[in-house]
Simulated scan of single mutants.
Amino acid sequence: MKFVRRIRNGLVRLLSGFTGALLRQIRRGLILLVAGFLVLSVGFVLLYGVLPPPVTPLMVIRMVEGEELRKDWRSYDEISPHLVQAVLASEDTRFCEHSGFDWNALRMAVAQNLEGGQTLGASTITMQTAKNLFLWPARTYLRKGLEAYFTILIELFWNKRRIIETYVNVAEWGAGIYGAEAAAQAYFGKSADELTRREASLLAAVLPNPRRWSASQPTRYIERRAATIRARMRIMPDRGAQPCG
């Protein structure tokens, strides 16, 4: 019996030691993984703050699905101010006031959703830039958490001009069409800096579902939406070379 107990105790100690070592390895691996992610994420945000991103996860996904890729980066000064103003009027009227999250819009969206009304979103342009630039198209808590994380980094390291510049250059505007220049060429046969107020409002109007709607062949709904955007544009201040002064 003593011999059996010794064997059993030895096995228990051996198993405990193995389990402890395994847990330490797992803990060390998780720490390295998190540290690596933090370094890479901050690095990419800093890099894309000065250089155009070559592709985004959504572009890669669409190409794997067989779509072509049409994109041509344009600097802020090479994009019609009408388009910048239309996007702000359509997507995020408080862009210049908030720091990445529009808490008023979030509270309204939560209240509306709790009341059982139409599901509303409250994504700012910064949040959409974070999603478009770094993440995949899915509605999960993990992706929303990462979206919030990248939103904080972008607002921390970029100015507002760079945020809107990046947004209009990576936004999907149709099947295989990304960015203001590709969209302007595809729908109106002109460069992004030549877009009129009406054309800009039509491009902004289709942003919520660019694969369903066309800026060059607008439905009545898109025409009405574009007219509303133009009305908002008329009461917005002219930002000039700086979207937020």
Rank of each mutant, 00 (worst) to 15 (best):
G145Y: 04
S99P: 03
G36N: 12
I154P: 02
V34L: 15
L30S: 12
S201W: 05
P208N: 05
G176S: 10
L207V: 05
P137A: 13
A204E: 00
R211A: 03
L23N: 03
F188P: 01
P57Q: 06
S75I: 01
T140V: 06
K131M: 09
G174S: 10
L120S: 13
R6P: 00
S191D: 15
L153C: 03
L32P: 00
L11H: 09
T219S: 15
G121N: 05
Y76C: 04
L133C: 07
P54F: 11
N159S: 07
I125W: 01
Y48C: 02
R220C: 06
G179R: 02
V12M: 12
R70C: 02
R220M: 14
F150C: 01
A86T: 05
L146F: 11
A21Q: 02
A180V: 11
V4L: 15
D193L: 09
L156F: 10
F150A: 00
A171E: 06
L40R: 06
C96Y: 01
I7W: 14
M233Y: 03
R211G: 13
L30F: 15
Q112Y: 07
G29P: 05
E65W: 05
F3I: 13
R224N: 13
A192E: 07
N159W: 10
Q118N: 11
L58E: 08
I152E: 08
N169V: 08
L203S: 12
P81M: 03
A192I: 10
T124P: 00
I79P: 04
P243S: 04
A200Q: 07
R162I: 04
A205Y: 08
R8T: 05
V4T: 13
R211P: 00
I154L: 09
C96V: 08
L195A: 00
D72P: 00
W103R: 10
L203H: 08
R107F: 07
F44V: 13
E67C: 07
L47T: 05
V39R: 09
E199M: 00
L83N: 02
L23T: 12
L30Q: 15
E115I: 02
M1S: 13
A184Y: 10
L38I: 12
G17P: 08
K131G: 02
V170Q: 00
V64G: 03
D92T: 04
P52W: 07
E97G: 01
R234L: 10
L153I: 12
L30H: 14
C96Q: 03
V34F: 15
A226Q: 00
I222C: 08
Q185A: 12
T93P: 00
A35F: 11
P81Q: 09
N132W: 00
H82D: 10
H98A: 03
S201K: 05
A182R: 05
G116F: 03
G179Y: 06
G66E: 07
L58Y: 05
R5P: 01
S216I: 09
L156E: 06
W158R: 04
G245H: 10
R212F: 15
P208C: 10
M233C: 13
N159Q: 09
N132K: 04
V34G: 05
K71H: 15
W103I: 12
S90Q: 14
